[in-house]
Design a protein around this nucleic acid. Structure first.
Length: 264
DNA sequence: ATGGTCGCATAGCGA
C-alpha cells in the first residue's frame, strides 16, 4: 500500500503533474492539500481516469481545499469536526476499506499562520494555535489503532527540520509555541513515521520557497509536510520517500510530494 | 534590512 501526500497548490493547474506522479510512482492513495477548487469544479473525472474511482474532496473558492483519491473504497466520517467553526476545508477523515486491513486516514491542511508569531496582534497565528489545540483535544478522544495522518501541518517540529534552527526560531512554522503544540498533538496517538525512517541528525525538508533564485543551491528548506502513524502500524512501515526532484518539475508546487509504503 | 514568487476572486490576499 503506497500512500502519497502533496500540497499541490492548485489541483486543476497541476493535473498533468499528478498524471506524471501516478505514472512514475503508482500510489494507491493520493492525498492533496491546497487544491484551491470549489466542489462543483472538482476534477473528478480526471482522477477517475488515472485509476482512482474513490474520491473524497472538500474545497472552497481560491483558498485551502483537501482531497483523497483512492484505488480502494473509502467511507468519510459522516460528522467531521468543524475546526475553529470556520468551515474552511482543511481536513478529511475517511476509513479506507481494504480487503485484509482497513484503516483510518486523516488528511490535514493546518493554517499557515501569517508572518508575525504573536496571537495578540496576528489573528492568523491565533487561528493556527487554536486549530492545533482543537485537533489535539479531538485526537485524545478518538480510537488509537490503525490510523494514518498525513498533510501539510505547516510546522517544522525538530531542529533538523529546518535549514537553520537558530535563524528560524522566531519564524512562523518553527517557533517554540508551535513545535511544542505539534508535539503534543502527535503524542495523542501517533508516532512520526518520517523520523522512524530518517532519524535526526539527518536533515529532512519537504518545502522550499518560490522566492529563492536557486532552491537547491540555497537549500533553505523546511519539513512542513508529515506522515504520522499509530504505533500498531510501525511494524508494517516499509519506506518513506520525499520526492525532492519534483521541486524541479515545470510549473510545480513549492511543496514536494512524499509517500509511505506499508504492508497490509 | 529588504525583497524575493506563486495562484486565484485578476486585485489584493494568502502562502
Amino acid at each position: 500500500m503506497r500512500i502519497m501526500t502533496w500540497n499541490i497548490n492548485s489541483l486543476r493547474l497541476r493535473l498533468p503533474l499528478v498524471h506524471k506522479l501516478v505514472t512514475n510512482y503508482s500510489p494507491d492513495i493520493l492525498c492533496f492539500q491546497e487544491t484551491k477548487v470549489p466542489d462543483p469544479l472538482f476534477p473528478h473525472q480526471a482522477l477517475q481516469d488515472m485509476g482512482y474511482p474513490f474520491i473524497a474532496f472538500k474545497g472552497m473558492k481560491s483558498y485551502n481545499g483537501v482531497a483523497i483519491a483512492s484505488r480502494f473504497p473509502l467511507q468519510p466520517n459522516d460528522s467531521p469536526p468543524d475546526w475553529c467553526m470556520k468551515t474552511d476545508s482543511r481536513h478529511l477523515d475517511v476509513e479506507i476499506l481494504h480487503p485484509t486491513t482497513s484503516f483510518r486516514l486523516h488528511n490535514f491542511y493546518v493554517p499557515a499562520g501569517g508572518d508575525i508569531p504573536d496571537p495578540e496582534s496576528n489573528p492568523k497565528f491565533a487561528h493556527k494555535l487554536a486549530f492545533v489545540k482543537e485537533t489535539t483535544e479531538w485526537f485524545t478522544q478518538t480510537p488509537s489503532k490503525a490510523t494514518i495522518l498525513v498533510g501539510d501541518l505547516n510546522i517544522a517540529p525538530l531542529p533538523e527540520d529546518v535549514w537553520s534552527h537558530k535563524q528560524l526560531l522566531p519564524i512562523v512554522s518553527h517557533t517554540p509555541v508551535e513545535t511544542e503544540l505539534l508535539t503534543q498533538w502527535q503524542k495523542t496517538i501517533f508516532v512520526d513515521a518520517m523520523r522512524l525512517i530518517t532519524p535526526p541528525p539527518e536533515k529532512l525538508f519537504t518545502w522550499w520557497s518560490y522566492r529563492n533564485r536557486d532552491w537547491r543551491k540555497s537549500n533553505r528548506g523546511r519539513r512542513l509536510d508529515h506522515i504520522w502513524i499509530t504505533p500498531d502500524l510501525t511494524t508494517k512501515l516499509k519506506t518513506i520517500e520525499v520526492l525532492k526532484d519534483v521541486r524541479d518539475w515545470e510549473k510545480t508546487s513549492d511543496h514536494v510530494p512524499l509517500f509511505m509504503d506499508i504492508t497490509l
